[in-house]
Simulated assay, not measured.
Amino acid sequence: MLILFAAPALWPEYETLLPAALARAGIEAQVVTEADPAEVDIIIYAPSSWLQDFTPYVKAKAVLNLWAGVERIVGNATLTQPLARMVDPGLTEGMVEWVVGHALRHHLGMDRQIVNPGHVWDPTCPPLARSRPVAMLGLGALGLAAARALQAMNFPVTGWSRTAKEIPGLTCLSGKEGLRQALSTAQIVVTLLPKTPETENLLNAERLSWLPKGAVILNPGRGPLIDDEALLAALDAGQVAHATLDVFRVEPLPQDHPFWAHPKVTVTPHIAADTRAETAVEVLVANIARARDGLPLLHLVDRSRGY
């Protein structure tokens, strides 16, 4: 089996780990960074790759994306091979830690103590987590894991997804009215949806107005989920108390972007979660074995839905 690793910038992280994982699984394969397209059986890929024309790869059984997001590849008309996105346990753990950390930061009002140049003695105690409703927008692997972690700390979590879901122990809503219901009581909103035409500007001026005054927004999902201008207006009006943003329409975030200077915005540089090679190789190997055996891929992308 010939595997093309078409993500040169990431190759040093995988050069040793991937062959070792393949050997542990008993898979005889050669992993290369260059190959005759007609001979390639599997493509491991990142959307920043040099590979943009999949037409010559007539033998390839699968394209395995190294990123959770596939919006930069799913519309490629030359890509006719099955495409799998990366659902990496390490990435999930990192996302959960970021979401829980920043949710607790805002819930406990940590900024008041961390940034307190006037040495103000403010003995105000926060409510218990059970009194701080959270709306989790997106109930995929990342959203559900983050929701469960917040539930474990007694935050009442309402989940919302574009299609109806039933998840034991979690209130699940869908559709426009479901979104309004989820937002109408949320003091913390977490956005963990993929970028698709349907999710772009999901949080616009109208929907931000549905929030209780003073809600907090955490966006580690995709930059275009939020209308930037509408968010800035909501922050200025006090409708939204703070926004902690990890993802942006343009990255790195331009130095003149208003988010940098806004006192109610925290910018984190797309660090909420990352694919970690030591755990991602196990996901890759599982799908390589399935492709070899003619089985459906794990985390197969639905092209019609864009993720």
Rank of each mutant, 00 (worst) to 15 (best):
I3T: 03
I3D: 05
F5S: 04
A9H: 07
E13C: 09
L17H: 03
L22F: 07
L22G: 04
A23F: 12
I27F: 12
Q30L: 15
T33E: 09
E34P: 05
E34V: 08
A35W: 12
P37I: 03
A46K: 11
P47H: 06
P47F: 08
S48I: 01
S48Y: 04
W50I: 15
Q52V: 11
D53V: 04
D53R: 01
A62F: 00
V63L: 01
W67S: 08
N76C: 06
N76F: 02
T78I: 06
Q81H: 09
A84V: 09
M86C: 02
L91S: 04
T92I: 12
G94C: 03
E97V: 04
V100I: 03
L104R: 13
R105T: 07
L108N: 13
L108S: 13
D111R: 04
Q113H: 15
V115F: 04
N116H: 10
V120D: 15
W121P: 10
P123W: 13
R130Y: 02
R132Y: 14
M136S: 07
L137P: 06
L139T: 12
A141Y: 06
L142V: 02
G143W: 09
A146S: 08
R148V: 13
L150F: 03
F155Y: 10
F155R: 08
P156A: 06
W160K: 13
W160S: 11
E166R: 15
I167A: 05
G169T: 15
G169K: 11
C172M: 11
L173Q: 07
S174K: 02
K176I: 14
G178N: 02
R180H: 14
L183D: 05
T185E: 09
T185N: 10
I188R: 10
I188H: 02
I188Y: 01
V190T: 07
P194Y: 00
E198S: 13
T199I: 11
E200I: 10
L202T: 01
E206P: 06
L208R: 08
L208G: 07
S209C: 07
S209F: 03
S209M: 05
P212H: 06
V216F: 01
V216E: 02
P220T: 07
P220H: 06
G221P: 09
P224L: 05
P224H: 03
E229F: 12
E229M: 15
A230T: 12
A230C: 15
A234S: 05
A234Y: 10
G238K: 08
V240N: 03
A241W: 00
A241K: 01
H242A: 09
T244M: 04
V250D: 15
P254I: 05
Q255A: 13
D256H: 03
D256W: 00
H257A: 09
W260V: 00
W260E: 00
A261L: 04
H262Y: 00
P263Y: 09
K264C: 05
K264N: 05
V265W: 01
P269W: 12
I271S: 11
A272Y: 05
A273W: 06
R276H: 13
R276A: 12
E282A: 10
E282H: 14
V285N: 04
V285Q: 03
N287W: 01
N287P: 02
I288R: 06
I288T: 05
A289V: 15
R292L: 15
L295Y: 15
L295H: 13
L297N: 00
D302G: 02
G306T: 02
G306L: 00
